[in-house]
């Protein structure tokens, strides 16, 4: 055997040993972490073991088949219409508010880097981080039950969702056109309308549609906390342990989401 081969072999072997040792330590740490988590979360191990059996029975005996007639009642159909309306209104108002915010929050063309930029960034970051369903509960406490609170919740969700995307689009524009407009002595608003918006508009339309799609998803469960829409019946049926009718609502939700996703996908690819 050649000398450098045997040298390389020994070196490889010891390296293998070392990396094997590290993997072993990593595995031990992972197992320790798993046990610690189980302890912190107080997860009952004996229930985990019987879990699949119980899930199987639950799904086959109590959830299926969904009782679709429930979803065809006028009051439920009304709530479905309300859900869609809420999502549209929330998304429209939300994106109208988002547009100027996105302009302020784009570092390259923001009219004020000292005040408006950090402020609008903060608004977008906070609205993104705050869970919509909790925000909806707060709004319900202030404005009472009903779709008005839900709509406001969706406005918040829209700002967080579309704000980041729209600002990113502005930050990616071609600055040469901005400079060309500035060179004519134009003010910030001129720059916005003649250099920024023409460049981002097509993508913004895509984001607006995408955002509506996201808000429809959100709106289906807002009723859960009394903020309007079909989620109310989901909660109602589950609280009286009528799982098959609850499943009917779930099926409607899934169908709606899949349809809106398809529609939004189609629109986005159709428009440009």
């Amino acid at each position: 055997m050649k000398e450098n081969v045997s040298l390389a072999f020994d070196r490889h072997r010891s390296e293998e040993m070392r990396s094997g040792l590290w993997k072993f330590v990593g595995l031990l740490l992972f197992i320790a972490f798993a046990f610690w988590s189980i302890d912190v979360l107080k997860i009952p191990i004996e229930r985990v073991l019987g879990m699949f059996g119980r899930l199987g029975t639950m799904i086959s005996e109590r959830l299926l088949p969904p009782e679709m007639a429930f979803a065809a009642q006028p009051r439920v159909v009304d709530s479905i219409v309300e859900t869609i309306e809420m999502s549209i209104l929330g998304a429209v108002i939300g994106t109208i508010i988002t547009m100027p915010l996105a302009w302020f929050a784009a570092w390259n063309v923001t009219p004020s880097r000292a005040i408006l930029f950090p402020l609008s960034r903060a608004i977008i970051v906070v609205t993104r981080g705050m869970p919509t369903l909790m925000w909806a509960m707060v709004l319900v406490a202030i404005f009472g039950f009903g779709p008005f609170a839900g709509m406001l919740a969706l406005v918040k969700a829209s700002i967080g969702f579309a704000g980041k995307l729209m600002a990113e689009q502005i930050e990616a524009i071609d600055m040469k056109r901005v400079e060309a407009i500035r060179a004519t002595g134009a003010n910030e608003l001129d720059v916005l309308f003649y250099a920024v918006i023409p460049q981002v508009w097509a993508n913004w339309v895509g984001i607006i549609i995408y955002n509506w799609d996201a808000q429809l998803r959100n709106s289906t469960i807002l009723g859960f906390v009394g903020a309007g829409g079909m989620g109310l019946y989901l909660r109602e049926q589950i609280s009286i342990i009528e799982y098959q009718t609850a499943m009917a609502i779930i099926v409607v939700i899934i169908v709606m989401v899949v349809l809106s996703e398809t529609a939004s996908h189609f629109l986005r690819h159709r428009l440009y």
Binding site: L41, I43, P44, R47, V48, M51, L55, T57, M58, I59
Partner: peptide
């Protein structure tokens, strides 16, 4: 939750 009861699981 309806199958397994309340909790983190």
């Amino acid at each position: 939750v309806s199958a397994l009861g309340l909790g983190p699981l």
